[in-house]
Computed example of a mutant assay.
Amino acid sequence: MDTDWLIRDADARDLAGIALLYETSGVDAPGTSDPHTLRAHFARLQSLPGARVLVAAAADGGALLGTLTLFVLPLLAHGGTPGALVEDVAVHPDAQGRGLGRTLMAHALRIAGQAGCYKLALSSNAKRADAHAFYERLGFKRHGYSFVVDVQPPAE
């Protein structure tokens, strides 16, 4: 297992690398990341309590190898115990199979545990069978159903 990386919170200098990770891993389509838009969304994300973008960077200070976004959410149910949600998991194809995704998810689980969360949830596109197998190897269980609907901006 390769451990030539470090996990840290992302900063604005990482946005080009994060965009590349999204595009190379299939989270976003190639050529769809606009740096100006990413910067604005990243600034908004950073202002949200409990929101963190984690990156796995090469230990030598080189390229980003993986990323995920973690939300610790205050809840009213479950006695007010918070829950955690992971989104936008991306590992560069050249870094897959080396334990990096496992390390990123373990880091997210540790943060969720320290925040007192009762669960960590994620969703995955139904077509991503390899990702599903990965999450199951990490101990995630299929739970319920995931539903999605496209949201349209209000008509003016």
Rank of each mutant, 00 (worst) to 15 (best):
G61D: 02
L70N: 02
F42K: 07
Q46E: 08
V72S: 14
G50D: 07
T69V: 12
L65P: 00
D60L: 04
A51K: 10
G61M: 06
H78S: 06
A77I: 04
A59S: 15
V55T: 06
T67I: 09
A59C: 15
L76W: 14
P49K: 05
T81R: 07
G80V: 09
A57M: 03
A59G: 12
R52K: 09
L68N: 03
H78W: 09
T67C: 06
V53C: 08
G50H: 05
G66T: 02
T81Q: 05
A56P: 00
P49Y: 00
D60F: 14
T81F: 02
L68E: 02
P49A: 02
L38R: 11
T69Q: 12
L64E: 05
G79V: 14
L75T: 02
A63E: 10
T67D: 02
L38G: 13
A57L: 11
L38D: 11
P35R: 13
G50S: 09
L75N: 09
L70Q: 03
G62T: 00
L48W: 14
R39H: 15
G50I: 00
L75P: 06
L45A: 11
H36M: 07
T69W: 05
A58C: 12
G62A: 08
Q46G: 14
L54Y: 01
P74D: 07
H78P: 01
P49W: 01
A59N: 12
P49N: 12
G79Q: 12
H41E: 07
P82G: 03
L68G: 04
P49R: 08
H78V: 03
A56V: 01
A58F: 15
T69K: 11
